[in-house]
Structure formats: structure tokens, C-alpha cells
């Protein structure tokens, strides 16, 4: 059965630069996905709760403030606490490549840095769904 892919696009932390998050939200919509956009200043707790209630396949987070090493892993930790193991978690924003390894070890499946074509993200989601 063809199931519509649902994605939570979230802005964790305090940074207000949501250009990238909105562009990706729109690109995912145009790729036929349903996008739940959370708006700014989301705590990891809020993101995980929204992901659970909305039963999304993917959590896509964007951070430009440098707080990624703190906030991204908090989200995957909370998912694990709730025994949610079938949600794909990806991230984007201004994130030094040196941090990719650490974030991957924390369950962030991929990091999409500045300049990533939206088509790359769309394709990654389609091929890496966990359910």
C-alpha cells in the first residue's frame, strides 16, 4: 500500500533562522510528503512529543546556532526512552563536518550542510525510511 510519508520539520533551540527549515518543508511538500512544521524555539521534549502524536516517519531538524551537539542527541535520547525506534532522524544547518561523526553515533542518520540540494534530502528520506 502506498503510504504518505509524514515528516516533522523542527527548529530546536533558540535560533530564529528558519529559511532553510521552511525551504525544506516546502520541498518535501512538493515531493508529495505531509510536513508538520513546529515553528521556532522547540525543546527536544516538544519535538519528540509532536513526533509521537503525529506518528511521523521522519524528524528533520535545523540548527544554525551551534547548539546541535547538545540538542540533536537529546532528541534521539528521548525517542529511545519512549522506545520509538522506527523514526528516521536527520539534521541540517551550520554544522561543522567534524561533528558529523559524533552526531551519527548519536542516531542522527544524516546531516545536510549548507548548499545541499533539497532533492538530495528528499531522496535520502525516501530510501532510508525505517518503516
Amino acid at each position: 500500500m502506498e503510504r504518505t510519508i509524514r515528516v516533522l520539520v523542527a527548529k530546536p533551540g533558540l535560533d530564529g533562522h528558519d529559511r532553510g527549515a521552511k525551504v525544506i518543508a516546502r520541498a518535501l511538500r512538493d515531493a508529495g510528503m505531509e510536513v508538520v512544521y513546529t515553528g521556532l524555539r522547540q525543546t527536544p521534549e516538544q519535538i519528540v512529543q509532536a513526533a509521537v502524536q503525529e506518528d511521523v516517519d521522519v524528524i528533520a531538524m535545523s540548527i544554525l546556532s551551534g547548539a546541535h551537539n547538545h540538542l540533536f542527541p537529546r532528541v534521539t535520547e528521548l525517542l529511545a526512552e519512549k522506545k520509538v525506534d522506527d523514526v528516521l532522524v536527520i539534521g541540517g544547518g551550520v554544522i561543522p563536518e567534524g561533528d558529523y561523526e559524533f552526531l551519527k553515533s548519536k542516531g542522527i542518520a544524516a546531516i545536510f550542510g549548507p548548499g545541499t540540494p533539497t532533492a538530495t534530502t528528499v531522496e535520502f528520506i525516501r530510501t532510508h525510511l525505517k518503516r
Binding site: E34, G39, Q49, Q53
Partner: peptide
């Protein structure tokens, strides 16, 4: 969207005041 079938579900944003309250369940439908 009638063209792509995709949707942006943004209503949840305005209900952030209720975030983390276990007595509230919000679900967006397209």
C-alpha cells in the same frame, strides 16, 4: 496540494502552549 498530494500542516504551531501536557493530544490531518 491537489498537484503533489503533499501538505504543510502548520496549525500545531499555534498550539505550542499546550506542549508537553499529557492531557492534550494534537493530530494534524491532511
Amino acid at each position: 496540494s491537489p498537484f503533489t498530494g503533499g501538505a504543510v500542516l502548520g496549525d500545531r504551531i499555534r498550539m505550542q502552549g499546550r506542549a508537553l501536557d499529557e492531557g492534550v493530544f494534537i493530530r494534524s490531518l491532511a
